[in-house]
């Protein structure tokens, strides 16, 4: 085998291995039905209100995930998929006082990064906001993550 041919095969294999998860965004007027064959449970897609968005994603591991939404924010999340995780412990500091909280968390892959939504939870600590609730929403850019992982 010529070296050049060998290099081409290596490059092709690398490209296939790095292939991103495929996704299909259904927009208004599209036929939103699909054939969910295979193993494993798949939750129902509920229809509520107008301008519903359904995002079905085949993950890199071959799983099918779905997300629905009615907001423009979800529209921008073109590559979003269902989140994972239950809680996340954080150590916020507000106005010079340190607190701890354990928040419910949802991770969502968006087109531009990883959206982390921490639902409001009680702050603990010795500051004046102890017992009050705190929440956080932050999107970590793709570049910052891919640079490290």
């Amino acid at each position: 085998m010529k070296p050049r041919t060998f290099a081409c095969i290596i490059l092709l294999a690398a490209a296939l291995g790095a292939a991103p998860a495929r996704s299909q965004v259904f927009t208004s007027g599209d036929d939103a039905s699909f054939d969910a064959t295979g193993t494993g449970a798949f939750g129902p897609l509920a229809v509520a209100g107008t301008n519903n968005l359904f995002l079905l994603t085949v993950t890199s591991t071959g799983n099918l995930s779905a997300q629905t939404g009615t907001s423009a924010t979800t529209t921008a999340a073109a590559t979003a998929s269902a989140g994972t995780g239950a809680t996340l412990a954080i150590t916020p500091s507000i106005a010079g006082f340190s607190y701890q909280s354990v928040n419910g968390v949802t991770y969502t892959k968006t087109a531009t990064g990883l959206l982390v939504v921490l639902s409001p939870a009680a702050l603990t600590g010795s500051g004046p906001l102890a017992g009050h609730t705190g929440g956080l929403t932050i999107e970590i850019p793709n570049a910052s993550i891919t640079q490290l992982f």
């Binding site: 996340l88 954080i90 916020p92 500091s93 507000i94 106005a95 010079g96 990883l114 970590i140």
Partner: peptide, 19 residues
């Protein structure tokens, strides 16, 4: 206008799942 800082760690399995 009060100061805010925070620290937390996103688990590795979440990173592996999405990136």
């Amino acid at each position: 206008n009060q100061a805010y800082s925070v620290f937390f760690t996103i688990p590795q399995d979440v990173i592996d799942r999405f990136f």
